[in-house]
Simulated scan of single mutants.
Amino acid sequence: MTAIGTAATTATVWTAVCRTDDLPRERGVAALVGGRAVALFRTYDDEWYALDNRCPYAHASVLARGIVGTRGDVPFVASPMLKQPFGLRDGVCLDDPDVRVATFPVRVVDGAVHIGVDPQPS
């Protein structure tokens, strides 16, 4: 098992989203996980990350359709609408560190990719 991203809490609910073979390298896919629109990304070196799918600049759920790349050693996704880059490790906008999107832990178990979210209060 490989866990990547934000540390999971004991209340984290894990949801299988896809198989590792379902998502090509340097791509993203959107998934509804625990009632949240989440963007799952696979980097060129097979690291997995999950961010909130909503771009805070465009106010649209589009990050999963962004361009995945690196700036130095920082993996990022560029929003497809306005091109702001968000770090995949921490969700921080590389051009404006005051802006960030939520991150979610990811784990791979027996070829299945899981995203963890904390349950939303009722």
Score class of each variant (00 low, 15 high):
77 V>M: 05
82 L>M: 14
7 A>G: 09
75 P>N: 08
19 R>K: 12
48 W>E: 10
54 R>C: 15
31 A>E: 02
2 T>V: 15
65 R>N: 14
1 M>F: 08
101 V>Q: 02
105 P>T: 00
90 D>Q: 02
56 P>N: 02
53 N>I: 06
83 K>E: 02
70 T>V: 08
26 E>K: 09
113 V>Q: 10
4 I>D: 13
113 V>M: 11
6 T>Q: 11
20 T>W: 01
35 G>D: 12
31 A>Q: 03
31 A>K: 07
111 G>H: 06
82 L>C: 01
104 F>S: 03
40 L>P: 02
60 A>V: 14
82 L>E: 12
8 A>F: 11
89 R>E: 10
68 V>Y: 05
5 G>F: 13
75 P>I: 03
117 V>S: 07
120 Q>R: 11
29 V>I: 10
104 F>R: 00
67 I>L: 15
57 Y>W: 11
50 A>W: 02
101 V>M: 01
102 A>S: 03
93 C>W: 12
7 A>C: 05
7 A>N: 12
102 A>R: 05
41 F>E: 01
27 R>F: 03
56 P>Y: 04
86 F>L: 08
23 L>E: 07
121 P>M: 04
104 F>Y: 15
114 H>N: 00
33 V>G: 14
25 R>T: 10
114 H>G: 00
94 L>E: 07
77 V>H: 06
48 W>T: 07
87 G>T: 11
37 A>V: 08
78 A>M: 04
23 L>N: 09
79 S>Y: 00
23 L>Q: 10
29 V>Y: 00
112 A>S: 15
99 V>C: 03
5 G>S: 14
14 W>L: 08
13 V>A: 09
23 L>A: 13
65 R>P: 02
50 A>P: 10
11 A>F: 05
6 T>L: 13
46 D>H: 08
